[in-house]
Write a protein that binds this DNA or RNA. Structure first.
Lengths: 321, 321
DNA sequence: GCCAACTTGTCAATGTTTTGTTTAGGTCTT
DNA sequence: AAGACCTAAACAAAACATTGACAAGTTGGC
């Protein structure tokens, strides 16, 4: 839960952002990056927004922007900057040792390591450990890379483990609940312009797995879209009606399981038919190949990776902005 | 149940919280953390809430918050103090001010007013407006009261509207997604003692509505329980296995719909049979009356309100703490 | 190519603030 | 009268703040 009243010491900020206290102070001194409140005794007190700002600045500098050019940007612009991250090597750069202090032994871990940690948390039914891993992953890799390098593979592994019987249904449910909440938080729109394009994310009737739709929501939100997230298994009429009501520029569907639903092709056709012409239908997920012919017929944009999806979003945005 | 009238000496408080008497006095002197009553002879007398407050403060400082930043927070804030996601929290802050519309000194609204606002947000398919209303509700009523005065009635109204046809499935899905995330965040405990009792929350096979279980999770988390939240529709074996693995002191089930599942009584019996003796089965939700006989037979604790539920938790906690 | 000027992360020196603990001497309860 | 409690003052360790400096890297002009 957010807290408008709570203030943090510079140490906390350092741990949360991965920036050394020295550096935080240097940025303040040289660029007035942020001017935190002070205690009576002149010690700095940061609010939650300050922490986000510093985290964004860290990512911006890691992706090549010199600090002086971004230090004074308003927070919205910084958030817009973040998606431009090349999601290759921040992990290496992020591995800056913090001060020798005992509290921050965080040497940044790579995607696969984080996925393994997450799986261990899941098998031991430890929800808060799983949350911690995901949180760590955001700090290490950045908001965007986490989606494709940790969440994506993790969902895949959990699904595999479930089908192979190495994970029980309970483990899968626990993981789903935590990941879903994580993604929902990541997808929360930050003060966007009312002019930002709207994406409706859901899955069609019969498709019960919602994580794909949630993942896509988070990715789109990070690219500056507004999101209407509707959860899983919605009939064609409902999807179309929601798209109308929210003036959606695009509808994103996730198809995962089952991959052989005889009803689904007709349902997809109906969705496309009911959708306004100005609304683009985007479809992704592990099962898209099974319905490829239908998708081609109705002219839906098919995505086979989050990168595909990002590209499609960019295209739509350019198309009419 | 904590006794409203009993008063405790500083020594008792010290033993219960693990804080030294000296430190308790130092906090009082420096920050007016709490100002206990006094005897005629000027010795301190603490009530149960003071003890909870001090325990929460201890946890907060242990998890890294300097005492000066948390000492004056109201108790709801302290209970709601969660390890904040590096991204989720600030976005709420960013989204908060714009929705509130009138910029004037917002006078706190009552539960029913907030419910109506929330319903308007839902019918207009505006997820972020709904989030704002819930956020406002927390500030107006406090973390705990929100659950019974806003979320509960709201869920009821949405369910009614859905059955009456005034709300479409899409509206219901949207509301569920937002409320579920809100509750999941509310249920995030912070730096919990490993000794805190564990609650497993879920719904049995066939029961597809998970909001009740999420609601219960949030309520229990606010009373200091650790939570393992497993989402909806879990088979008896899985529930029992999760209870075992997490050493749960209680399992909470929510029954809402359907209210006439012929399989469910047997499923409930199996759950009770497979559960460790040390684990209590608690059942609540709109459909408990339909399964009352079975529930009575197996000796489950039946709750018809959140208050009931809180009382049951308190009883369990005392039982072995 | 090369040098000067600038950028940027890190450190060291030195003093202050915060915070949990301790000491000292008096008061209250039983 | 013993044990628990009170206030006030003092301590010491950890955490912070400020200033000034340095080294590695980059930029720009010649």
């Amino acid at each position: 839960m957010p807290d408008r009243f709570l203030r943090h010491s510079i140490k906390t900020v350092s741990e949360r952002t991965g920036l050394s206290p020295h550096l935080i102070r240097a940025w303040e001194r040289r660029y007035e990056t942020i001017l935190p409140e002070r205690t009576d005794g002149n010690q700095r007190l940061y609010c939650d927004e300050d922490i986000e700002r510093l985290a964004l600045l860290k990512r911006a500098t890691e992706s090549g922007h010199p600090i002086r050019t971004v230090a004074r940007l308003p927070i919205e612009e910084l958030r817009g900057l973040a998606p431009q991250l090349p999601d290759g090597d921040q992990s290496v750069i992020g591995a800056q040792p913090l001060q020798a202090g005992s509290s921050g032994p965080r040497s940044a871990r790579t995607g696969p390591e984080l996925v393994e940690s997450a799986l261990r948390a899941i098998t031991s039914m430890d929800a808060s450990a799983l949350e911690s891993v995901l949180e760590e992953a955001v700090l290490s890799l950045g908001q965007v890379a986490v989606l494709s390098h940790v969440i994506g593979p993790l969902v895949q592994r959990v699904g595999d483990g479930w089908q192979a019987g190495t994970l029980k249904v309970g483990h899968e449910h626990l993981a789903s609940a935590v990941i879903r909440t994580f993604l929902a938080n990541a997808a929360r729109p930050f003060a966007v312009h009312a002019s930002a394009p709207m994406l409706v994310a859901t899955t069609p009737s019969g498709q019960v797995h919602e994580i794909g739709a949630a993942l896509v929501s988070a990715a789109a939100a990070n690219k500056g879209w507004r999101i209407t997230y509707l959860g899983p298994s919605l009939p064609a009429e409902e999807i179309a009606s929601a798209a109308h009501q929210s003036h959606a520029r695009a509808v994103a569907l996730s198809l995962v399981h089952p991959a052989d639903d005889p009803q689904l092709p007709e349902e997809l056709r109906r969705i496309q038919r009911l959708l306004p012409d100005s609304t683009t239908l985007i479809v992704g997920g592990a099962a898209v190949d099974s319905y490829e012919k239908t998708l081609q017929q109705i002219g839906a944009k098919v995505c086979r990776s989050l990168n595909d999806f990002s590209a499609v979003l960019d295209g739509l945005r350019q198309g009419s902005n």
